[in-house]
Structures are given as structure tokens and as C-alpha cells.
Simulated assay, not measured.
Amino acid sequence: MEFFEFKNIDRPQKGDLLLSEPLLPDINFDRTVILLCEHNEEGSFGFVLNKLSILKVDEVLQEINSFDTSLYVGGPVQQNTLHFIHDIEHLRGGGQEIMDQLYWGGSFEKLLDLVQERKVDKNKIRFFVGYSGWSEEQLQQEIDQNTWIVARGVHPSYIFNTPPEKLWKDILEKMGGRFKVYANYPSDPKLN
């Protein structure tokens, strides 16, 4: 069942996905998919959706010791910070809406209570260490230089339910045309 139809966009907005172009030489963003959580005249930030940490959430947070779920590397900025995106009704009030049914943050104390009460569906929340950020106009300059492909039209359930190792390729294939060709580029063109 399809929840979306991805569209390529020249000007990003909050809720869009940024896909690194296939031959981006920056190891921090090699074949990454970033959820854009904010984009305005002051700058932009988001979280890498497909880069798993070697640790689990309950290994970095003692307060959440019974919640064995994946931890993602949200980006290279402030990797000593923890963030979460979710579609949990009881946390929406304290979070910032990214798009319909998807929020960033919220009351951490409320989250802890919900985890202890076993009322958090692991398929409706993702945790990140660090984030990806851009100063004013920096992201648009990178898009204009073909560093990023901007995709619009994702449904939150797709973010939570698509295996991270398949996300980048799957989105490009669904976009079709030249993007479908990008999805099959070898990681190292010299090996082609």
C-alpha cells in the first residue's frame, strides 16, 4: 500500500526529505536521507533517518532502561544531544509539528512515564544523537550545487516502517526517471 507519491522539489520546506546525491564525497552524508525539521531564513536542521548508531537507546539513557530500541546518528552537529521524532498522541502537545502526524520532541518526563507504563509503540518513535544543520541560505546553496535531492510527499508511517538500509535507494526508485538511475549507482564508481 502506497502512502505517498514523492516529488522532486527545488525549494525545500519543513517535512521534506533531503537525499544526498549518489557521489557526495562527505562521509557524514554518504547515501543519507535527512528529515528536514525546520527551514527558514535563519537556517535549517534535520535528522539523518538511515544511519544507525552501534548503541541502543537504553544503553545511553539510564532513565529509559527497559526500552530496547535503535538509536540513530542524526548528524555531525552536537552529538552529545538526544532528540526524538514521533507520532505519539500524548507527546504532541509539547512537541513541534513537522507535518501531519509527525512531531519533534516533547516532554521528556512524559515520555519516560509512557515508557514505564509500556504505552510507547516503538514503530512510532525514533531517537537521534546529534543533528544536521545549515546556516541561513547554506542549504539552498548546496541544493543549487546538486548536493541534495529534495523529495516531498512522505507519510510518517513510511519513515518509521522502512528499514534504514533500504530508505535512500527506495525513495529514489519511487521518484522514477533519472532518480531511479541514481538509486543504482555503485558506491565506488571505480568498481563499476
Rank of each mutant, 00 (worst) to 15 (best):
67 F>S: 05
68 D>T: 07
69 T>S: 14
69 T>F: 15
70 S>M: 11
72 Y>A: 09
72 Y>N: 12
73 V>K: 07
73 V>L: 14
74 G>R: 03
75 G>Q: 02
75 G>S: 11
75 G>I: 00
75 G>P: 11
75 G>L: 10
75 G>D: 08
75 G>R: 08
76 P>T: 00
76 P>G: 09
77 V>D: 09
78 Q>H: 13
78 Q>T: 00
80 N>I: 02
80 N>D: 14
80 N>C: 06
81 T>D: 08
82 L>Q: 05
83 H>N: 08
83 H>A: 06
83 H>S: 09
84 F>H: 07
84 F>Y: 15
85 I>C: 06
86 H>V: 03
88 I>V: 05
89 E>F: 08
89 E>G: 04
89 E>N: 08
90 H>A: 10
91 L>N: 03
91 L>E: 11
92 R>F: 14
93 G>M: 11
93 G>V: 01
94 G>A: 06
95 G>F: 04
96 Q>K: 07
96 Q>S: 13
97 E>P: 07
97 E>D: 00
99 M>S: 06
101 Q>E: 06
102 L>E: 01
102 L>W: 08
103 Y>C: 06
103 Y>I: 05
104 W>H: 04
105 G>I: 00
105 G>C: 03
105 G>L: 00
106 G>F: 13
106 G>M: 08
106 G>E: 06
107 S>W: 03
107 S>P: 01
107 S>H: 09
107 S>A: 03
107 S>R: 03
109 E>C: 01
109 E>S: 11
109 E>R: 07
109 E>V: 01
109 E>G: 12
109 E>M: 07
110 K>Y: 04
110 K>P: 03
110 K>Q: 12
110 K>F: 08
111 L>F: 14
111 L>T: 01
112 L>W: 15
112 L>V: 06
112 L>N: 09
112 L>Y: 15
112 L>I: 01
114 L>S: 04
114 L>E: 07
114 L>A: 02
115 V>Y: 03
115 V>S: 08
118 R>K: 08
118 R>G: 07
118 R>N: 13
120 V>N: 07
120 V>F: 04
120 V>Y: 11
120 V>E: 04
121 D>C: 06
122 K>I: 03
122 K>S: 15
123 N>M: 15
124 K>H: 09
124 K>G: 02
125 I>S: 05
125 I>F: 14
125 I>Y: 15
125 I>R: 09
125 I>L: 11
126 R>S: 12
126 R>C: 13
128 F>T: 07
128 F>N: 05
128 F>Q: 12
129 V>P: 04
129 V>C: 14
129 V>A: 15
130 G>Y: 09
130 G>Q: 03
130 G>L: 00
131 Y>W: 13
131 Y>Q: 00
132 S>T: 14
132 S>A: 15
134 W>V: 05
134 W>K: 02
135 S>Y: 13
136 E>W: 15
136 E>D: 13
136 E>L: 12
137 E>Y: 14
139 L>F: 13
139 L>H: 11
139 L>R: 07
140 Q>T: 10
140 Q>D: 15
140 Q>F: 14
140 Q>I: 13
140 Q>K: 12
141 Q>N: 12
142 E>L: 06
142 E>G: 04
143 I>K: 05
144 D>V: 01
144 D>C: 02
144 D>W: 02
144 D>S: 10
145 Q>A: 12
145 Q>Y: 13
